[in-house]
Structure formats: structure tokens, C-alpha cells
């Protein structure tokens, strides 16, 4: 499991013919990007590079393509856009939606928005964490489940709410969790 946690290392990148270095957090999961994925990404960059404020949309589309934004993908974007890797990395780590490590096959996301919190979503979250043995942002060793909290999915009428990929579960109590997780095993 430890190998799924990001580790800090030094990355090198080339900008304007000069080698630069930067300390950054990377995942130890080997990068398995394919040729097709890279071609798709290059096409996206070609399409968007001249729109004002292109970096964020490019990174969002890149995450759609790869499922996460490993340093390898960040490097492609930095090279293509001719900006320092620091800048891409800075954006990737600023926004909660960019993931540096891959997510599970089933992404569990428990709402800790106010409406859900006052109705007891924290105990629901704790129960999942306990059952799967993972914490915020982590993934089970078999790559099956990952756990994260989110802020209001807009279904406050069903509070407390969680989502597993696109399935929404509402009016939860901790005792319902084992049966729900079983559906995905």
C-alpha cells in the first residue's frame, strides 16, 4: 500500500535548452501511458494552445485522458506549452481536482458538505475508512477502491450522501456501508 502514497523526489526538465531541477511529489505507481493517450493529449494541446488561459483547460482534458496527472504528463504539457514545469506542478497541486496519483476502479466520494455533515456523514466516512483500511486520497492495494471526501454534490435533500463513481447513495447510516461495498467486490 505504501507504494501508492506520493513520495518527494527531484525532477529534471528542459526549458529553452537549459536543464532545470525541482523538488516535487510523485506517485511511485509506474506510469503506463500509451501512445494513443499521448497523441490525444497532443491534439488537445494543439486545439487549445492559443485560447486565453489555456493551461487549466488543457490539464483538465489531460486528466480526463489519463485519469490522473502524473509528473510524466505534466512534463509533456510543460514542454509543449513552453512553460516551466514548476508552473504546471503549481497549478496541479493548487486545485483539489487534479490527482497526482491514480484513483481506484471505484472512486468513493463521501460528501462532507455542511448539510451532510450535520446529518452525520463523518461517521459514514469513518466507517468506510475503517472497513477499507484507507485514508483520504488513498487507494486500496488491489486498486479497487479509492476514498475521498467532497463538498456538496447538490443532493442535500438526500443527506448524508456519497457517490461511488456515478452512483449516488443517500440517507446513509454507517450500518449500510458493508452491504453497499459488497456490491462492488
Amino acid at each position: 500500500m505504501d507504494e501508492l502514497r506520493p513520495v518527494t523526489t527531484i525532477c529534471y526538465y528542459d526549458l529553452g535548452g537549459k536543464l532545470h531541477q525541482m523538488a516535487c511529489k510523485v506517485t511511485t505507481v509506474p506510469f503506463r501511458g500509451t501512445k494513443e493517450q499521448e497523441e490525444k493529449l497532443l491534439a488537445v494541446i494543439a486545439e487549445l494552445r492559443d485560447t486565453p488561459g489555456a493551461l487549466m483547460p488543457i490539464m483538465q482534458r489531460a486528466q480526463d485522458i489519463y485519469g490522473y496527472l502524473p509528473i510524466e504528463v505534466q512534463t509533456i504539457i510543460a514542454d509543449q506549452m513552453n512553460v516551466p514545469l514548476e508552473k504546471i506542478y503549481g497549478i496541479a497541486t493548487f486545485y483539489a481536482q487534479f490527482a497526482l496519483a491514480p484513483k481506484g476502479e471505484y472512486r468513493i466520494s463521501v460528501c462532507l458538505g455542511t448539510a451532510c455533515y450535520v446529518k452525520g456523514s463523518q461517521p459514514v466516512y469513518d466507517k468506510i475508512s475503517e472497513l477499507l483500511g484507507i485514508k483520504e486520497g488513498e487507494c486500496t492495494p488491489d486498486g479497487k477502491f479509492s476514498l475521498e471526501s467532497c463538498r456538496c454534490v447538490g443532493a442535500c435533500g438526500l443527506a448524508p450522501v456519497m457517490m461511488i463513481n456515478d452512483d449516488v447513495y443517500g440517507r446513509l447510516v454507517p450500518d449500510m456501508i458493508p452491504d453497499i461495498l459488497k456490491k462492488y467486490e
Partner: peptide
């Protein structure tokens, strides 16, 4: 009108941060 998607940062609701974010930067 163009559409820009946020990426999960509460501070980007603040007006100057929102504009910095549309410009493609860290939304400070």
C-alpha cells in the same frame, strides 16, 4: 461567452482569485 471549469478550490469564488484562475493560473 466561454465556459471555464473550476477545479475544486473554494478561494476561486473570490472575485480576483476567480479571474486569476480563468487566466489559467493558481487561483490566488
Amino acid at each position: 461567452i466561454g465556459l471555464r471549469l473550476g477545479a475544486g478550490a473554494f478561494v476561486c469564488g473570490e472575485e480576483t482569485a476567480l479571474m486569476t484562475s480563468i487566466e489559467g493560473n493558481r487561483g490566488e
